[in-house]
Nucleic acid binder design. Structure first.
Lengths: 248, 248
DNA sequence: ACAAAAGTGTTACGTTTACACCCATGT
DNA sequence: ACATGGGTGTAAACGTAACACTTTTGT
């Protein structure tokens, strides 16, 4: 069999950054490693890409192993490849981020992996470069959610507008005006109001909505402004003053 | 030395999708392979990732080998990993896209690789999955350029507004209103007008501009709307009607 | 009756679009 | 003088942000 000569061969892994929403907070799913190296430490769920599968397929398999879920939103994020990122042996990691409805998976979570949800502002120390992966994923979700109705992936079947707003506020680590948020949201025509109310959050109760799945599917590749003001995204970076030099 | 057992090891390559602009059209740099497999066929410039380098470093090295250029805009795009994408041996490719000023490189282009520029609408058949890589790259550039002043990377030191508009029109495969385009562009404060004119394009001549590099650097991570109407981006996809249901 | 969260409407402002004419120059 | 592409201004429509009060209901 013909092969390329004189080149290094290495291991390929897929790691999943899994975000979930419980109706109140955004969380990240981590596992406590039951194997070496770094036994007992927290890490992303990952695994080696097998001989007969692509990295995409591996990521799906890994996600299913951990959560029991299929057909989940899963997108390739970035590939990490510095030579010594894994101390044991050179391993290149293709990372994926997943958005799941926390309730759907809950029961199925296999104990085998000692998985736990962590609040985004309360992430423990992670192995290797996994913390960096999480940070990149969070930024990507922020970025994408400005333009795409991406965060709907995290919602349960029925949800309320205050819940959804909470979700966005969590991702962007900021607060929004509920009147403007609600108006913009409804103007997309993606939500269908139910008669039923969720009374868990308040005395008055908030109406449930469901996604208009057809419209949602079509809106996926389109561009929408979900965030009142993209300036929110600049809080991390430097220049916000230059973005739009508003005439004073 | 400790190693992971029972896993497949494979080759890692970096492939570069190199876009250039000659002041009139956007082009893609391809090489005619002087080696097997697929000797004589057109492909992206690529190479194996070496033992001591990351994929990012490999991509920079490869770009330098071909163009002689350093410090070029280069961004990781996507990782392609289906098992048999390379018929010789399993090779995973981390792809990068580069944006370069076509004039800067021109002379330096090594003949060794039989490189040629191709117009985006006139790309020859490519090996493996390289065509797919090009398509993904083009979409990514389109996407990013809506929000970031990305395409400035393709410009020579001095450029005119009609040139720049031509560039955008090429990427999006559409046309813009020059009055609106020019106003929006100048409103960014990123351009500094020169006294000199480029007379190559018309009798009257068009004023040269240069980039305000400081402001540009700061604007890099921020979000701007460079395209008159994001609907342009939807021409490929389905739903544009649903994006904004304008009240009639 | 009160506390707590949900829900709703208006106004002012800035941004975006559509659109048409004059300008400078080389031949 | 004319052809070619470069450059500019305005009005109408739209979207966005800021803002405060009423509603519901469990205790």
């Amino acid at each position: 069999m013909l092969r390329y000569s004189g080149q290094q061969r290495l291991l390929l892994a897929a790691d999943c950054i899994i975000f979930g929403f419980d109706g109140r907070d955004i969380k990240l799913l981590l596992i406590q490693r039951g194997f070496k190296p770094a036994l007992g430490k927290w890490s992303l769920m990952g695994g080696f890409v097998r001989k007969e599968e692509s990295a995409d397929e591996a990521a799906n398999r890994i996600l299913r192993q951990l959560t029991g879920l299929e057909g989940v939103y899963l997108e390739q994020l970035h590939t990490f490849s510095v030579p010594d990122r894994d101390p044991v042996e050179r391993t290149v990691s293709v990372t994926y981020f997943a958005l799941i409805d926390i309730n759907k998976y809950q029961q199925q979570l296999s104990d085998e992996y000692h998985a736990e949800w962590f609040h985004l502002n309360d992430i423990p120390e992670l192995i290797f470069d996994h913390r960096q992966m999480v940070d990149v994923a969070r930024k990507r979700v922020q970025y994408k959610a400005t333009l795409h109705p991406l965060l709907f992936e995290l919602l349960p079947e029925k949800f309320t507008i205050p819940q959804l707003m909470h979700l966005y506020e969590g991702i962007y680590d900021t607060t929004f005006d509920k009147r403007n948020f609600s108006r913009k949201l409804l103007s997309t025509g993606l939500l269908i109001k139910q008669n039923e109310k969720d009374k868990s959050g308040s005395r008055k109760g908030a109406f449930y909505y469901v996604l208009d799945r057809q419209r949602y599917a079509r809106s996926q590749q389109s561009f929408l402004h979900f965030i009142p003001n993209p300036d929110h995204l600049l809080r991390n970076g430097q220049a916000s003053s230059l973005v739009k030099e508003r005439k004073s």
